[in-house]
Write a protein that binds this DNA or RNA. Structure first.
Length: 1221
RNA sequence: GGGCCUGUAGCUCAGUUGGUUAGAGCGCACGCCUGAUAAGCGUGAGGUCAGAGGUUCAACUCCUCUCAGGCCCA
């Protein structure tokens, strides 16, 4: 049985047999959805709904009122008109007291009071009421709707607005909605019928579906989804094609793991065909989970037509791009230094490299090499002595300071030693000065060009190369070593680059397994690392070893097998991105980056230093490089740009199930077409970097240019993309580089336009664990998104991720904070809807023409609507400029603060009854606010917003407009006035804390000041203030008031402009004005300050006049606002306070006794004369508040057992309550 | 080693073009309310704005350097 659906648990007003399926049937989605957006749809009339309409209802009510007047001793059957009640509650004034008296007199000592009270929602201990209501409900149904809300009997609520189920976890409710969306094809509906709407183009960065999605994916996807939803709600057509990145090393590694193999040899032993077949299968191992996660978190994406990078169409588009670049001479063959694992026989990607850094102890060797000029030596440091066999040069930093030293001891070696000045102490010791003398100082540049003798001569230098020379290089640092770097171009990226610059000799003796050739002296046949010790000995023998030690440092190892890596020069294919660097920078400058620093800094700086993009990989599972090379002459190269072209070259029709992957593709060969060449063209063995795949998605997802040219022209470039900051050099780069290199080959993309393939980017940073530590499997601190959804619901997770801080800052994911922050907001929102709106509106309110227009509603309603307008504008604008965090925070603040904590709290009484003009106004206002809040909330919390919106309007929030024209209609004056009132209320409460008089105790008078707010604007809000602070009168202090002294506060911003350096003097002068001067200034008399002998007339902008209290009132002030309360208590005030205290205590007793809120009671009070007086003066009010049909003052407490003692400010009263059955 | 980001209350974060009382939520202390109730509300304490210089009449804000954390690249 479904949770929360047992009959016994059903709320009393929930009709038996009412199921969600039934509900769907009643409101078929298509009908509901076909209605004009924004219209309010009334639900179909039910059997019990009134037949005669509102007019009949009102007439009936009037008749009843006549018969049962307020003087009647019979049970009052008519609800107390809400307006009256509110006045009583709110305007705590003398009028109320007198009215109460007359009632009291009329009904003497006995009350028969029957107030309309909506039954509570079923709760624990309320079983009887529950039962009664269900019976009544059936009776009502029998009567065919004759009984109505507001009618002569206890009102029966409808379920027009179903409350959010309090007994079901969010997870459960969200899943139900998901099923409903699925039924309704809701996502489809946001696209259909919008063919002609303006498009908002979004590119989905394809995830690699070979790992489980984590919480950081939820983060990025929330960002993507929410902006797409916002634009869709604004009427754009937002296609969102899903995509899968399916090639590349991560996939291969996953399969290797699965097979328990490692390295190229083992893969080739298995067979490339089989290996790639497994790769293709493996890719979708987690695809289902990704799709489920996306669906569950409400990431709307078209998963029915995804692009898949291994598909034939996709590969063909990528080939087209490569061919286009080849034709533009942007694709070429070159060399690259790569980290290489000699055991696995493969180069490693930078990503793999990062996995394998380990702290190891290695030799730390200083060698002193002789310069050609005799008697001078230069000191060199290395931790890889084995590379010294390949040494061909030394590098110094041209701008670094070096020193040349000589031993002070005459009996020691008198040759000099050169090293970086800043390294002398570290290398030679703090006391070097006692042993070494400085011969001369030189700049690095002075050393450049000098020749030296290499430490080992085990290898011959090739002819026509430069060797044994000192070069100047910027990469040399003086942070460690000697400030002189030994160069072996075969074994280091910096070395290699320098080698190219200086035409240095290239000595690479190692074979593929990193062994020295057998023929080499000393180290012949040794594994490279094993040569260190022997070579160190040899250095010593040759007299060049200066010092040998050991040092712990970080060195890269193969993450698979732990073998130390070496850097190796290898043949590679490149995209000549340096040729389009300027164009890329120009295009990048037009991108709207969030935050800008990623675009300008991280990405922009990197583009400046762009080097050619090495796109080939010596691997198996990837888009094959469509390049064929002649066996006879490697200079003969053919690039293929389509399958048709391949068929044409190969001279055969491609089979139906043609597979462009290895090894199949490698069997296509043809005769070299170069004139006179008889060689065979064979495909270059490499596959391409998977980043080239994903960077091609803009066109390859449409199989452009082979198909969909029109669609693609419509969908390029993207308006918006969003990914993690780690994509800076990944996808952000590959999209830009490829689009720029292709230029005119893509639509809307000529270089003149300087258009980026994406107009706006929102970058998100990492999600860390609650300690701020990066999540990783090995640390075991991974947060499982499914668990979070289950515990808190998707809405809470999404809201928390977005609202907690800007997406481009790393955030600590703290589940406790999530529960607190997002949970609190959602609870408040639900409470306002379920606990206030739905609960009471179900007594008979529904949107109707009777509802007063905004202009005719009470001022607090108008304020609420004005604030709503401001919120709508703010949220919409924030989302327009991709500031989701500001938008979310604005909504949260509005709901918590303005709506729940002010509007609802102050107006609760208006919801207790549906009748009355004011009450209709309150309902329609709250309805309007909730509808709009749902819409604003929809992109952030798509579930709860949809649930509530459907209840409120009958249609899905995701088909509703985001904002209406109301957004332009705020009332700034009213907003400011309410702000002032709220500030005054805050100060008033602080005063009450100070003087220790609780709000329950009424006070006679408050005096207050609100600067810069017109009293005319404040006047209508004063009753709110009086009620909030429970004071009888609110006065505004005028300038002439004796309670007030005036002081001037300087406005530095204005004074600074006028007085410059003399501002402090001017400020001092302003502060010195007397109250009298200021008073006159307020009456338009000029105000003059004298600074440094010069007189200046001041204007109203130059200072703020602050009113301060004088005299004995209790006071609080803040920024020019102040509130003073008169703490004097008259006997009357005290009595009223006691009455309130009494009411409060009785209410608590009711609750403790387990009475339903609608139960009537007999109230007995006993106590001394002071208590008697209170009962006499306020009896009617007390009785009404506590639903006492009878109030008896018993004099002395006689039945001590039943009577509870209550302390009324030092007086003891005794109270007993009895429920009337 | 380079580039970029971050450092504000115990925690998570705001803080406009520099303007003199640096804010919010949570937590904490104290209290209120009891018709949103396994809810709601208030008041208060708590900060050398990482540190040091500089520019300015005025710096959390702009500049330089240092320290700490993070990301990316070497």
């Amino acid at each position: 049985m479904e949770r929360g659906r047992r009959d016994a648990d059903r709320r009393p007003h929930q009709p038996v047999g009412r199921q969600s399926a039934h509900r769907r049937e009643r409101r078929p989605a298509r009908r509901a959805l076909s209605r004009p957006v924004g219209s309010v749809r009334r639900r179909p009339a039910r059997a019990r709904e009134p037949r005669g309409g509102a007019a009949v209802r009102r007439a009936a009510r009037r008749r009843l009122r006549c018969r049962d007047g307020p003087e009647s001793r019979n049970a009052r059957r008519v609800p107390i008109p809400a307006r009256d009640r509110r006045r009583r509650r709110r305007h705590v004034d003398r009028a109320r007291g007198s009215r109460r008296h007359s009632r009291w007199n009329a009904s003497a000592w006995s009350f028969h009071h029957h107030r309309h009270v909506p039954p509570r929602r079923a709760g624990a201990g309320d079983g009887r009421a529950h039962h009664r209501h269900r019976q009544a409900r059936r009776a009502e149904a029998d009567a065919g709707g004759a009984r109505r809300v507001g009618g002569p009997v206890t009102a029966i609520p409808t379920t027009r607005f179903e409350p959010l189920p309090p007994d079901r976890p969010a997870d459960d409710v969200e899943r139900e909605l998901l099923a409903r969306w699925e039924d309704e094809q809701l996502f489809q509906q946001t696209l259909t019928g919008r063919e002609s709407a303006p498009t908002f183009v979004f590119f989905e960065g394809p995830p690699t579906a070979n790992g489980r999605p984590g919480i950081h994916h939820v983060f990025a996807r929330t960002i993507k989804d929410l902006f797409c939803r916002h634009r869709a709600m604004k009427g754009f057509r937002v296609d969102r094609k899903a995509g899968w990145d399916t090639h590349g090393l991560p996939v291969e590694i996953e399969v290797e793991k699965q097979l328990g193999i490692s390295g190229k040899q083992q893969i080739e032993a298995l067979g490339v065909a089989e290996f790639n077949r497994l790769c293709r299968e493996s890719v979708f191992k987690y695809r289902a989970e990704w799709e489920q996660l996306s669906a569950r978190m409400a990431y709307w994406l078209d998963y029915e037509h995804p692009y898949v990078t291994f598909s034939n169409d996709y590969v063909e588009s990528v080939w087209w791009a490569l061919k286009t670049m080849f034709d533009k001479k942007l694709l070429y063959r070159g060399h690259k230094i790569l980290p290489y694992c000699p055991r696995c026989g493969t180069a490693l990607s930078s990503h793999e490299l990062a996995l394998g850094y380990q702290d190891v102890e290695d030799p730390s060797v200083y060698i002193a090499l002789e310069l050609e000029e005799g008697g001078r030596r230069i000191l060199v440091w290395t931790t890889t002595p084995w590379t010294l066999v390949s040494n061909t040069a030394l590098a110094v930093h041209p701008e670094l300071d070096y020193v040349e030293l000589v031993r002070r001891e005459q009996d020691k070696d008198q040759r000099t030693l050169i090293l970086a000045e800043s390294r002398v102490r570290a290398v030679l010791g703090e006391d070097y000065d006692s042993r070494w003398a400085v011969v001369r100082r030189l700049r690095g540049a002075d050393l450049v060009g000098l020749r030296y003798k290499r430490p080992l001569d085990l290898l011959e230098f090739p002819p026509d190369t430069v060797h044994e020379v000192i070069v100047g290089e910027e990469f040399v640092s003086a942070d460690d070593g000697s400030g002189v770097v030994h160069m072996s171009p075969a074994f280091g990226a910096d070395d290699y680059a320098a080698g190219l610059r200086h035409n240095l000799a290239f000595l690479q003796p190692l074979d593929a397994r990193a062994r020295f050739p057998e023929s080499m002296p000393i180290v012949g046949g040794l594994f490279f690392k094993d040569a260190d010790a022997l070579l160190t000995e040899e250095l010593e023998r040759r007299g060049v070893l200066f010092r040998a030690g050991r040092a712990v440092h970080s060195y890269p190892h193969c993450w698979r097998c732990g073998t130390p890596l070496l850097y190796y020069a290898r043949t590679s294919w490149f995209i000549r991105t340096t040729a389009v660097r300027e164009a890329m920078m120009a295009r990048n400058a037009r991108v709207d980056w969030h935050p800008p620093s990623v675009g300008e800094g991280r990405f922009g700086e990197w583009l400046k230093n762009n080097i050619d993009w090495a796109i080939s990989r010596d691997r198996y599972w990837g888009t094959p490089l469509p390049v064929w090379i002649c066996e006879a002459d490697a200079a003969h190269v053919d690039c293929v740009g389509s399958y048709a072209e391949l068929a044409e070259r190969a001279g055969e029709t491609l089979p139906h199930d043609f597979d462009p992957h290895r090894p199949n593709i490698d069997r296509y060969t043809w005769k070299c077409r170069e004139p006179g060449c008889i060689g065979t063209m064979r495909r270059a063995p490499e596959v391409i970097d998977t980043w080239f795949d994903s960077g091609s998605m803009s066109f390859a997802q449409w199989h452009y240019p082979f198909e969909n040219a029109e669609k693609f022209a419509d969908q390029f470039p993207a308006d918006f993309i969003a990914e993690g900051v780690d994509q800076t050099r990944g996808w952000f780069y590959s999209l830009l580089a490829i689009a720029t290199a292709l230029g005119d080959a893509l639509p809307n993309n000529s270089d003149k336009l300087e258009a980026s393939p994406y107009k706006a980017v929102v970058v998100n940073d990492m999600v860390l664990d609650q300690q701020g530590v990066k999540m990783s499997k090995s640390r075991g601190n991974i947060v499982d998104p499914w668990l979070m959804f289950e515990r808190h619901g998707v809405d809470a997770v999404r809201l928390f991720l977005i609202a907690s801080s800007n997406p481009w800052l790393p955030r600590a994911f703290d589940e406790k904070l999530l529960a607190e922050q997002a949970g609190r907001f959602l609870r408040t929102f639900k409470n306002v809807y379920s606990g206030i709106f739905a609960q009471y509106a179900n007594f008979g309110w529904a949107p109707s023409p009777q509802d007063p227009p905004v202009s005719a509603r009470p001022v607090i309603d108008r304020w609420m609507i004005s604030r709503l307008a401001g919120l709508e504008r703010a949220v919409d604008q924030s989302l327009d400029v991709y500031d989701a965090t500001a938008a979310a925070r604005a909504i949260i603040e509005f709901v918590d603060d303005d709506l729940a904590n002010w509007y609802v709290r102050l107006n609760r009484a208006r919801f207790y009854d549906v009748d009355g003009e004011d009450n209709r106004a309150a309902f329609v206002t709250l309805h309007e606010v909730l509808v709009s809040v749902c819409r604003l909330l929809a992109p952030f919390a798509p579930f709860v917003s949809d649930w509530v919106h459907r209840e409120l309007t009958g249609e899905s929030v995701h088909l509703a407009p985001f904002v209406t024209e109301r957004a332009d209609r705020g009332d700034a004056t009213l907003d400011a006035a309410m702000d002032a009132i709220r500030t005054l209320a805050r100060l008033g409460r602080a005063v009450r804390e100070d003087i220790g008089i609780k709000v329950r105790q009424p006070l006679a008078r408050m005096v207050c000041v609100a600067p810069n707010v017109r009293e005319a604007a404040l006047a209508p809000l004063i009753p709110l203030l009086a009620a909030e602070l429970n004071v009888k009168e609110v006065e505004f202090a005028s300038s002439g008031d004796a309670l007030v002294t005036l002081e001037a506060k300087p406005n530095f911003r204005a004074l600074g402009k006028k007085f410059g350096k003399k501002t402090p003097l001017a400020a001092q002068a302003v502060g010195a004005f007397t109250g009298e001067q200021l008073r006159q200034f307020l009456h338009d008399e000029p105000l003059v300050v004298s600074v440094d002998g010069e007189s200046h007339q001041l204007g109203p902008d130059d200072l703020t006049i602050v009113r301060r209290a004088s005299g004995s009132l209790a006071v609080q002030e803040d920024a020019g606002f102040f509130v003073a309360l008169d703490p004097a208590l008259t006997p009357e005030l005290k009595q009223e306070g006691h009455a309130r205290e009494l009411i409060s205590r009785v209410q608590r007793m009711r609750k403790e006794s387990g009475f339903a809120v609608s139960d009537r009671i007999v109230l007995s009070v006993a106590g001394p004369d002071e208590v008697h007086v209170v009962v006499e003066a306020h009896g009617a009010w007390i009785a009404e508040e506590v639903l006492a049909a009878e109030l008896v003052f018993a004099g002395e407490a006689t039945q001590g057992k039943d009577m509870h003692a209550i302390d009324l400010d030092g007086i003891t009263a005794f109270v007993a309550i009895t429920r009337i059955e």
